[in-house]
Amino acid sequence: MNPTVSQDLSFIGMLANASVLVQLVMALLLVLSFLSWWYIFLKMFSIKRAARQSDQFEKDFWSGSDLNELFQGAVNARHTAGSLERIFEAGFREFAKLKRQPGMDVQAVMDGTRRAMRATYQREVDQLESHLSFLATVGSVSPYIGLFGTVWGIMNSFRGLSNVVQATIAHVAPGIAEALIATAMGLFAAIPAVIAYNRFAYDINRLATRFDSFMEEFSNILQRQVNL
C-alpha cells in the first residue's frame, strides 16, 4: 500500500521523526512541565504543613497556656516553628521590649507590636506564595509554546507536500500528528499548573486571613496586658 501509511506512528517514533525545532519545543515543555510539577508538589507539602502547624499553634494558644511559656517554646523551636508561631514570637518580642521602655503610652506600644507582626506576616505569606507566579506563567504560556511547535511542524509537513504530485491525507497526516504532540505536551504542562495555581492561591488566601485574624486577636490580648 501507500508507503507513508506504514510509517511509524507510535509515540516514540513520532517524537524521533519530528523536526529539530519541534523537538526543542517539546524538550522545553518537558522541562517546564517537570518544574511545574515539582513546584506543585513542593507547594502542596508546604501549604499542608503550614495549615497543620497553624492548627497546632492555635490549639496551644487558645488552650489558655501562659504567653511567656508559649514565647519560650517558639524561640526554642525556631527552625521548626510554623508561620503563625513566628508571627506570635515577633509580636511578643517587640511587645516585651516596648513595654520595658519608659514613657511609652499604650498606643505606641501597640503600634510597634502590630508593625512587627505585620512584617513577619508579610514575610511568611511571601514565603508561601513563592513559585506561585511560576505556575501561573507555565499555565498561561506553555499552550502557546506548544502551539508554536505545532504550527512549525504543520508548516514543515505542508512544505513537504509541495513536492508530491498527488497530495493525499496520508502524506500530511504523520507530520501533523507529530506536530500536535507539541500542543498536547503544552496542555499537559498547562492544565495542572493552572489548577494548582488556583488551588494554592485560594489556600494561601485562607491562611493569610487566618494569620490576620490571629494578629487582631493577639493584639487585643496584648493591649489588655499593657494596662496591667
Binding site: L30, S33, W38, I40, F41, S46, Q127
Partner: peptide, 18 residues
C-alpha cells in the same frame, strides 16, 4: 528564608507523574 521542606520527595513525585 527557610528552605521549603520536601524538595526531594516533590522532585521524585514530579518524575513519577511524567
Amino acid at each position: 528564608a527557610p528552605r521549603e521542606p520536601g524538595r526531594v520527595p516533590a522532585a521524585v513525585l514530579a518524575g513519577v507523574v511524567h
